[in-house]
Structures are given as structure tokens and as C-alpha cells.
């Protein structure tokens, strides 16, 4: 009898720890139930900035003005001027994927800033070199403001597409402003 009680208690405890002790759940990435933080860039901000700027870049037709389409893109420096440590690939990778899917541009992974390649093995395997048509550089800036308990942060995502003559043939900027007294869920 005593053993049965102990076994039951262990089973109930295990169920509580594994199942009932958490309210973790999935939400759609970029959806309107994502957490909104004033003090940091959220995933929906990266998605929105990438979406807007990719659309503007594709609409401009700048990538189509190359001799041998699709245009070859090299990724240059993306400066982080925010107060947070961020991985700029959260922005740039989304743009790269979207541009590749558009059929208008491919990104070189064997040629990068300072002669470093993103994929060293691909660099060793490379049999023919394709000079890049464009370099993509940018900056992410954070501007804070506050009044009383209300905090506001504006994140400015800036990108420049530079051709082989050193001319910025396309430039894009997307600003996202968030305001609140603390983090919340939804827009």
C-alpha cells in the first residue's frame, strides 16, 4: 500500500514537471503574437526590415542592369550601432534568401571582406572565379527616447548596393519605432 502511494506520488510529480509546469507553446514567427521588446530588435523587426528593403531593391531594377544575369552579390560590412550585440545575418540572410528566390541575384560565399571567404571549403573547391557585380553594405542604428515611464526606441536599418565603379546604385532605409513601458506580446 505504502509502495503504491509512493509510486503514485512520483508519477504525479513527473507529470507536473514535464507537462503542467510550463506554459511554453509555439507561435508563428513574425506573427502578431510575437513578443515586442522596446530595448532590442525582435525577430519580426528583422523580417519586416528585410521584407521592405528586398521589395524596394527588386522593384528598383538595379539588379537587372548587369551583363550576365543573375547579378553576383558580395556581402560587405554591416555595422551594428545599436546598444545590443546582434547577429547581422538575422537581417542579411533573409535578404540573401529572398534575392536568390527572386532569381535576380546570387551571393558569393568565396569572396568576402578582407579576403576572407564565408565558406573556406568552397573557396578551395572553386575552379572558376566570378567577380561580384555588387557589394552590399549597411548599418543598423538605434535611437532611444523617453518621457516619464514611457520608453521609445527607433531602429534604422540601412543598406547600400554599390557597383564595380564604386557607385551606390541603390540605397534603402527602413525605420521601426517601438514604444512602451515594458515588453509585451503583439503589436
Amino acid at each position: 500500500m505504502k509502495n503504491q502511494i509512493i509510486v503514485s506520488l512520483v508519477a504525479v510529480s513527473a507529470a507536473f514537471i514535464t507537462g503542467c509546469g510550463t506554459d511554453a507553446h509555439y507561435v508563428e514567427t513574425g506573427g502578431n503574437r510575437n513578443i515586442v521588446s522596446v530595448g532590442q530588435i525582435n525577430i519580426q523587426d528583422y523580417i519586416q526590415a528585410a521584407d521592405t528593403m528586398t521589395g524596394e531593391l527588386l522593384a528598383s531594377g538595379a539588379l537587372g542592369r548587369v551583363k550576365n544575369p543573375p547579378a553576383i552579390l558580395a556581402i560587405s560590412r554591416i555595422v551594428n550601432n545599436t546598444g545590443n550585440q546582434i547577429d547581422t545575418d538575422l537581417l542579411i540572410k533573409k535578404i540573401r534568401v529572398a534575392l536568390l528566390q527572386s532569381g535576380k541575384a546570387v551571393t558569393t560565399t568565396t569572396f568576402g571582406l578582407g579576403g576572407q571567404s564565408e565558406d573556406p571549403l568552397a573557396k578551395q573547391m572553386q575552379q572558376t572565379t566570378h567577380p561580384a557585380d555588387f557589394s552590399l553594405s549597411g548599418k543598423i542604428i538605434q535611437l532611444n527616447a523617453g518621457a516619464g515611464d514611457t520608453k521609445q526606441a527607433t531602429y534604422s536599418f540601412q543598406l547600400s548596393l554599390t557597383d564595380t565603379q564604386g557607385l551606390a546604385v541603390w540605397e534603402g532605409e527602413k525605420e521601426i519605432t517601438k514604444q512602451g513601458t515594458r515588453g509585451g506580446i503583439g503589436f
Binding site: G30, G55, L58, K94, A98, Q101, S102, F187
Partner: peptide, 26 residues
Amino acid sequence: DSASAAVAAEINGGESKFISAVAPTE
């Protein structure tokens, strides 16, 4: 579309506003 998020926006009372988007591929 890997780069697609719900965009937050505001519209004032009585305001007419334009929103736009470009397709991800041809």
C-alpha cells in the same frame, strides 16, 4: 516568402492611407 512578417501600422481618424508591397518573385 522567407522575409514576410505582419507589418504594424497606424491610421488616424478619417485618414486615407496607402500601403504597398512588391512580390517576392516574377
